[in-house]
Design a protein around this nucleic acid. Structure first.
Length: 696
DNA sequence: TTTAGGG
DNA sequence: CCCTAAA
């Protein structure tokens, strides 16, 4: 299905040029199509984000895994050529579940990362994944999820998922106590183990909720994998900052790098990042387009702002319009995810996934493939740490960081469970795409952020952090965030039965089935994969700070603590994140966010009327300049539209009017002016050059 | 970029 | 407000 969808929608590119006289409907369709495509692209972008975190590996044969180098171990992803091969051998896997983990931020200091190298390994450069250990070999199951860098001590369940912590070694972690990742523990996960595959890192709060074995249509779900390690290319650490006094909107995520490097997230200074950037990008143009696409704006979560990233994406917003959009988005969206791509939208020639370490990375997960059903379970664990004491502190000169604010660091998010079903004959490429689709669906679907405190969900958005106690360190320990599927999105789970199996802990799961027809996707859609780029999830979070500047940032006291939390969303309907379908994507269009509505005040109307009386109805730019020059949010198009509505309003009965009532006097002037200028216009047409007389 | 209009 | 064709 997925593939088909893609095909249907056509990834071939935008339908471009000239349709001179397309009928409206035709144009619409075209638009729709474009949107769809954009959505896809977006999806990929999102995917990319996740992709970096997910490692999927399948072993075609037991032997290969054991002996081979890291690359060999990961046949699927390492080389392009291999990708397409049908290496996927699936064995019925146990219901092992893996947790996918998305790291929102990368806690580790740069230095650390370098040292650890574990993350680095994921990058192509470090093909040699030292970190990628032999773990793969052990299990019989075709696929395994292996994550590196797991804190040995912390491993709670070996079973399905490992939460690799990127942060290992980061000072923070050590301090935080629970989260110590210093040592790179390599863990092998057994397929069969179902129970909690979560590695606990840090305090209990951040533990991943256990995943429950899910029976997938009677077949043992294969473990695709899931681990998103904190590889985030990113800029480093992000601190989620909350100002106590402020409202929820105040939550900010700050990138540590910002301080250090002007480049911050935007300019990849790290080797790793650089690497990514270097990666061939097939789709810059598209990316830009995507970025620009309104779809990104939709939710608070995804923003176009991401474009701002200098490195990869050139600023798209030169036009006023764009500026406006940006503006408003920043203003209105509390938790926006900007700079999604800042860190590293990485495009792999190969589809971008490989380089991300899906297969290569040291921290990898091995997926188990079982028959045709692959199961991705995962959760990204989210761990927040804040504290002055830790290295984590912001070196930032900005006052914003300090005091009286709660700094939170979200290490990673647990991603809702994901199920994938794919035929054995499917190619690796198709598998990748499938996973991408699934992940994209989740991420792109419009996630909600849930806040948990001491295991309880905080539903009241209006309550202050102080009131909740979040500002207190002790409470911070029990603070957690969750990514929740957007309830609004309907999903059509292919396997409904599965849901029953899902434990309460599972936030959600998505099932994706692939069309039995591998051939279709392989060649035809191969390009699609290429387009995939993987932004860091971390970026999402990071972006937030831009979006939600809090007035109180500068406040005085600072309380910080380590937060680690990983929370399953119990109440989520499993079905919520369902199968990736075209419909789903179209829904994603909702992501696009429109400018906030800003009703014209009477004063503005007055100014508008006056200007139009003077200038006429065909010179909106002049009107704008004359009367709204300093109202950045009013474009000439807005003014024109307003005039249009004013005229309409003036013509209807007062009872039918809505909104702030406009003085009748003004409406009368509107009609008068409108009539006058209409007449003038008519005259002009008849007589080219009548005369210029101003009534007013 | 602006205009002009339909949505 | 959005989206676009045209200019």
């Amino acid at each position: 299905m997925v593939l088909q969808n893609r095909l249907d929608y056509g990834f071939n590119g935008y339908q471009v040029p000239a349709m001179p006289r397309a009928t409206r409907s035709a144009r619409r369709r075209d638009t729709v199509r474009k949107k769809v495509e954009e959505n896809k692209m977006c999806a990929f972008d999102l995917l990319a984000t996740v992709a970096g975190k997910l490692l999927i590996e399948k072993e075609s044969s037991p032997t290969s895994s054991s002996t081979s180098s890291a690359k060999d171990q990961c046949p699927i992803g390492n080389q392009d050529g291999k990708d397409e091969s049908n290496a996927l051998k699936v064995e019925p896997c146990g219901q092992g579940s893996c947790d996918r983990k998305l790291f929102v931020s990368e806690p580790v200091s740069q230095a650390h990362e370098v040292n650890n190298g574990s993350k680095e390994s994921s990058f192509p450069q470090n093909v040699d994944n030292s970190g990628f250990t032999s773990k793969l070999t052990t299990s019989n199951c075709s696929e395994r999820l292996v994550t590196k860098n797991i804190d040995h001590g912390n491993i709670k369940n070996e079973i399905g998922s490992l939460c690799s912590q990127v942060q290992e070694g980061s000072s923070m972690y050590r301090e935080s106590g629970g989260c110590k990742l210093d040592g790179e523990a390599k863990t092998l996960v057994k397929d069969k183990l179902n129970s909690n595959g979560d590695v606990i890192i840090g305090t209990g709060a951040d533990m991943c909720s256990s995943e429950h074995p899910v029976v997938f249509q009677g077949k043992p779900p294969a473990l695709l994998s899931s681990d998103s390690s904190a590889k985030a290319p990113s800029c480093g650490n992000h601190v989620l900052q909350k100002s106590l006094p402020s409202t929820r909107d105040d939550v900010k995520i700050v990138s540590r790098d910002d301080d250090e490097n002007s480049s911050g997230c935007t300019h990849p200074s790290r080797p790793r990042t650089k690497h990514f950037r270097q990666a061939p990008r097939i789709g810059d143009r598209r990316i830009r387009k995507i970025l620009a696409s309104k779809y990104w704006k939709v939710g608070p979560k995804f923003r176009d702002e991401t474009l701002s990233n200098p490195g990869k994406c050139k600023p798209i917003y030169r036009s006023r319009k764009e500026c406006y959009k940006r503006q408003r988005s920043q203003m209105t969206v509390p938790f926006k995810k900007r700079k999604l791509f800042d860190r590293s939208p990485v495009w792999n020639s190969d589809g971008g996934i490989n380089d991300w370490g899906f297969f290569n990375s040291s921290e990898k997960g091995i997926g188990d493939a079982s028959n045709s059903c692959a199961k991705l379970q995962g959760g990204a664990e989210m761990c927040s740490v804040a504290g002055q004491h830790t290295s984590f502190q912001c070196r930032d000169s900005h006052g914003a960081f300090s005091f009286d604010s709660v700094k939170l660091r979200i290490k990673s998010f647990r991603v809702p469970e994901l199920f994938i079903e794919i035929p054995e004959t499917a190619t690796v490429g198709s598998l990748k795409r499938t996973v991408m689709e699934a992940v994209t669906a989740i991420l792109g679907g419009g996630l909600h952020i849930g806040v948990l405190l001491q295991g309880k969900k905080v539903r009241d958005d209006n309550i202050t952090l102080q009131q909740t106690g979040i500002s207190h360190n002790d409470q911070l320990d029990s603070l957690g965030f969750t990514l929740e599927p957007n309830p609004s999105q309907s999903s059509t789970p292919l396997c409904t039965g599965d849901s029953s199996h899902i434990l309460p802990g599972d936030a959600s799961q998505a099932l994706i089935r692939y069309p039995p027809n591998p051939s279709v996707d392989d060649q035809g859609t191969s390009n699609i994969s290429a387009e995939t780029h993987v932004p860091n999830l971390g970026n999402l979070v990071e972006s937030d700070h831009d979006s939600a500047p809090s007035p109180t940032d500068m406040s005085v006291d600072k309380s910080s603590a380590d937060l680690k939390a990983l929370v399953p969303v119990p109440e989520m309907n499993v079905d919520a994140l369902a199968v990736v379908t075209p419909h789903r994507k179209s829904k994603r269009s909702e992501i696009a966010q429109r400018r906030i509505r800003r009703p014209f005040s009477v004063a503005e109307v007055e100014a508008l009327v006056q200007a139009v009386e003077k200038l006429g109805t065909g010179r909106w730019r002049d009107v704008k300049l004359r009367a709204f020059d300093n109202a950045k949010h009013r474009t000439y198009v807005d003014l024109k539209d307003k005039w249009k509505t004013l005229v309409h309003t003036a013509r209807i009965s007062p009872q039918q009017r809505r909104g702030e009532p406009v003085p009748q006097e003004l409406l009368d002037r509107v009609l008068t002016a409108h009539a006058y200028w209409s007449q003038q216009q008519a005259k002009q047409q008849l007589k080219p050059q009548p005369e210029t007389c101003l009534l007013f």
